[in-house]
Computed example of a mutant assay.
Amino acid sequence: MPGYIVVGGQWGDEGKGSVVAYLAMRDEPEIIARGGVGTNAGHSVFIGGKKYAVRQLPTAFMQRKARLLVGAGVLVDPEVFFHELEHLKDFNVSERVGIDYRCSIIEEKHRILDRTNGHLHGEIGTTGSGCGPANADRVMRRAKLARDVPELEPYLTDVAAEVNEALDEGKLVLVEGTQGFGLSLYYGTYPYVTSKDTTASAVASDVGIGPTRVDEVILVLRSFPTRVGAGPFPTEMEEAEAERLGLIEYGTVTGRKRRGGGFDFEFARYSARVNGATMVALTMLDLYDRGAFGVTDYDKLPAKAREFVEEVEERVGVPVGLIRTGPELEHTIDRREVI
């Protein structure tokens, strides 16, 4: 598997961070590149009982052997970037990270507009991180680029060149996306979406690789999806029911309460087709069946949990290769060798 992409298949918050972190530690990729929108998406990872949340850098920072890259299609907020370098200093991130010199910069004016614009922040429910206005400036060809920021100069690189050279040499490359399929500017619930496409094809473009260079597309789906902000959510349940099921969560970036809902098989199947998924990573199976918590052997899962996994495979049309059964990295069932 010289090159694979991990993307969210629902509304975001699918647990991509934990999947990427597991793959990074298990498969030891030499290059880990981040695509996606920018700092409006946060990924959380639990390591040794401690929670780490990142918005700018690749989620798989804990893989100390890997070069960490931020692709040209990703918006960069220098303030967030340097904060995360300090936050993750125990992992020597500053020595391993590279930002594409063509990344657009999020400036203070973008954050202000995002937080004060009635349509964006009031009606759509954006995070206020400045991503939409910054992407608008890129489209208008007036955005400041990473190469224009002196403080970033030590970290600048050509991510597309690095990633393609690594693939040419047969090295393992892991590319992680952000947000979820339902938030795609093109395929999501417009206008309640993010400011660009979020599919695997877009993420590949973000880091500068063509579709023939991708061997696996891993679609992350959670047993009970959640959604932050406004917009349609066909399987949304009443808040009391969500609370009973333990689905009351809060967004990593905004702290806003997430809306919980049931698994939407039709939507997941469409997401898998558009993303070209070759494998599903099913997360939070322990929410669907409490007896699944911490299980690492598929054959030891309760019958209810196994039946759900089999239903996902049948109705979504993609094999389930990874199953997350708890918050720690070791709470993972890896079935890739048997599917």
Rank of each mutant, 00 (worst) to 15 (best):
T252G: 03
E243M: 15
Y187H: 14
S201T: 02
R222C: 09
V274T: 09
G231T: 05
V253Q: 07
T254A: 10
E216K: 14
Y190R: 00
N275D: 02
G188A: 00
G261Q: 05
R258E: 12
E243L: 14
L245C: 11
V214C: 12
D197M: 04
Y192F: 13
L245E: 15
E241P: 03
F233K: 01
Y250F: 13
E243D: 15
G251M: 05
V220Q: 07
P211L: 09
D215M: 02
V253C: 13
R256L: 04
K196W: 11
S201W: 07
G251R: 06
G251Q: 02
I209W: 08
Y270D: 03
E239I: 07
L245S: 09
V203I: 14
A230M: 13
Y187V: 04
R269E: 12
E241I: 08
R222M: 01
V253W: 01
D206A: 14
R273H: 12
Y192D: 00
E266H: 05
T198N: 01
R259G: 13
S195H: 04
R259C: 12
A277I: 00
I209L: 11
P234Q: 03
R256G: 14
G262N: 12
F263G: 03
E249P: 00
T252F: 04
E249K: 10
G188Y: 02
E239L: 04
G210I: 01
T226K: 01
R258V: 00
D264H: 05
I248H: 15
Y187E: 09
Y190G: 09
A200Q: 06
T252L: 09
G251K: 09
E236M: 14
A268F: 01
T212L: 14
A240T: 14
